[in-house]
């Protein structure tokens, strides 16, 4: 099946090519969802083995991104896609690039977990993981929306990102207080800060994908997303 509207193409090989692209995105999104979930689990349970595994599996996502690009380029060259087909193909390429970035953030969380687990745990880690879980839900919803071509669901994800940005801003303050409290926390807290930032970026990438879905379905671009990440203005005086 594919996400495009209307009846099937007269040339069935065209449908097969589109299906292949769809299948690759579906495989890629499934894998990155697992990677991101595992990276959170590794932070939460200080599981070095799992963190290492996340780090190693990132190559598979990179490979899938190249496969998506190759399939999309082939479709454009051989089928001269138009209208919704063209929009789907362009969105698939953009989504693949976003998904690949999400994979990179998951890998980076894995790497930082390896360092953080050398230090005593901080209660704020739980809070970072909780934010990660909201983003995980966002990811699941956005991939479902992409594969189902559901722009309303995509819009819901897009709108919810504001909550995640707000959560991130409050975590930023909290982590700063840990650093000020005891300088021995600074190493682990710095890594945790980056973990939180990575999670927040994954949320942003989910909204990028939402925008691609919206474009595929409507042919129009979304206006600028509301931003609630105020951490750049934060300081503890």
């Amino acid at each position: 099946m594919n996400t495009t509207v209307g009846s099937d193409h007269i040339v069935t090989a065209y449908d097969q090519d589109l299906d292949e692209l769809y299948r690759l995105i579906s495989q890629m999104s499934g894998l990155v969802e697992t990677q991101f979930a595992n990276s959170l689990k590794a932070v939460d349970s200080r599981d070095e083995e799992l963190a290492l595994k996340v780090k190693q599996r990132d190559k598979e996502i990179d490979q899938l991104e190249s496969d998506v690009d190759a399939a999309a380029i082939r479709l454009i060259a051989l089928r001269q896609p138009m209208a919704d087909d063209l929009r789907f193909i362009i969105s698939a390429m953009k989504a693949a690039s976003d998904i690949e970035r999400i994979g990179d953030y998951a890998k980076n969380i894995g790497k930082r977990t390896l360092v953080m687990s050398q230090f005593p745990a901080m209660p704020v880690m739980k809070s970072v993981v909780r934010m990660g879980q909201s983003v995980q839900t966002q990811l699941r919803d956005i991939f479902d929306a992409f594969l189902a071509g559901d722009e309303e669901k995509a819009m819901q994800v897009w709108e919810k990102d504001e909550d995640i940005d707000a959560h991130y801003t409050s975590l930023f303050r909290e982590i700063l207080t840990y650093m000020m409290e005891d300088p021995r926390n600074i190493t682990a807290a710095s890594h945790l800060m980056f973990v939180a930032k990575n999670i927040e970026r994954v949320g942003d990438l989910a909204t990028n994908i939402a925008e691609s879905i919206y474009f595929t379905k409507t042919g129009e671009s979304l206006a600028d997303r509301p931003k609630a990440d105020a951490s750049k203005y934060e300081s503890l005086d």
């Binding site: 509207v5 209307g6 009846s7 099937d8 193409h9 007269i10 209208a83 919704d84 087909d85």
Partner: peptide, 12 residues
Amino acid sequence: ERTQGYITGRFG
């Protein structure tokens, strides 16, 4: 929809 169907090769 008819334009879309025609230009994307879904009906002839």
